[in-house]
Amino acid sequence: MRHRLSDRDLAILGALQRVRLLSLRQLQRLFFVDGSPSARTRRSQLLMTRLTKVGVVVRFSRVIGGIRAGSSGYIYGLSGLGQAVINADGPAGGKRRRTWETKPYFQDHMLEVSELYVQLVEQHWAGQSELLAFDSEPNAWRHFTGPGGELVVVKPDAYIRLGTAALESSTFVEVDLSTETLPTIQRKSQRYIDYWHSGMEQQLRGVFPKVLWLVKDEHRQERIDGVIRKLAHDAHALFETGLLGTGGKLLGGSASGSAA
């Protein structure tokens, strides 16, 4: 199967391994950048239909954008065969994952992470920032020993390293779709503080990344800002909030970066 696929085919599988789900429109922006919009749509539809038929990707039944979106609104993920083709084993060499035919909320969440990745790739091409690393979950997760000696896992949605001018920034990203309670946000934030205090990230990578919460609207942003203000004063600089859709620009600018 690997020999039957082109370099672009394999690159598409690699992108799906990285972010788990991509819409057809996102795939167009990554892999079909030449030609008119209609030509790009047609070529991407034909290629993804072929990859679906040979069994390396799965096209999910849900359509983004409603019935008018048609095939341009489909969502794609890796199949088990697609994972085998690119040797996408689990993080500890375990079983390969199944495809992600998940609830709409989880698909929305994954697609927001994918959108951030696509934005950063586009900024990389435009010379606005250099995308050095983009790890989505579970590769972005961190394990450390908590204050009581227990094993604790920090689960950011993405870990990102960018180069801008002579600087390099590192960021943990949390995508928030307003489904979690504020006490849950506080507990997750405290877990980052505990990880910061452990010193493990600084020892391994030299710095502790900024933690960026990306939210749906300004009201939610104000509420999460309120949670952050209630945390220990010396930890406030670890956190930043921003709006979904602007994450690429925020990360590529000077506002976000390594905390300490």
Rank of each mutant, 00 (worst) to 15 (best):
L250N: 13
E240H: 14
E101Y: 00
T99P: 00
G90A: 11
L204W: 01
L22G: 01
I160F: 06
V85W: 02
R18N: 12
Q190P: 00
E137T: 06
S38E: 14
L251I: 10
H197Q: 10
R40D: 03
G149W: 01
P138E: 05
L250G: 09
G257E: 03
V118A: 04
D108C: 01
P37T: 07
R191C: 12
V154K: 04
S23T: 15
T49C: 06
R142E: 02
G80D: 11
Q128I: 07
A166E: 15
A165T: 06
Q186R: 15
L151T: 04
R8V: 07
G257I: 14
I160L: 08
R68H: 07
E112I: 15
E174F: 11
Y117S: 02
H3R: 09
R223I: 10
F32Y: 07
T41E: 08
Y192F: 15
H109C: 13
W141F: 11
Q186M: 00
L214N: 12
L177I: 11
A259S: 15
L78P: 04
L16K: 08
P156K: 05
G65K: 09
G199M: 08
E130M: 13
V154Q: 12
R161A: 01
F208G: 07
V173E: 09
S178K: 13
Q203R: 15
H109R: 14
G14R: 09
L46K: 04
A126S: 07
L131Q: 02
R59N: 10
V58H: 12
P183F: 09
L27G: 06
V57H: 02
Y74E: 11
G146T: 13
V211W: 04
R40N: 07
R220E: 00
Y192C: 07
S170I: 00
I185N: 01
H124F: 03
T179C: 00
T171A: 14
A158V: 05
H236D: 06
P183G: 04
L243N: 14
Y105E: 10
E218V: 15
Q190C: 03
G93I: 11
M200Q: 09
R161P: 02
L21H: 08
V63S: 04
F208Y: 09
R229H: 08
I224Y: 05
P183A: 11
R68Y: 06
A11P: 03
G245Q: 05
R229L: 10
L251C: 14
L81C: 02
K103W: 13
K53R: 15
R8F: 04
D217Y: 09
Q190L: 08
E137S: 04
L120N: 11
E122Y: 00
L162E: 08
S36V: 12
R97F: 08
G252I: 05
P91L: 02
S38K: 14
R42C: 00
S169C: 12
H219R: 14
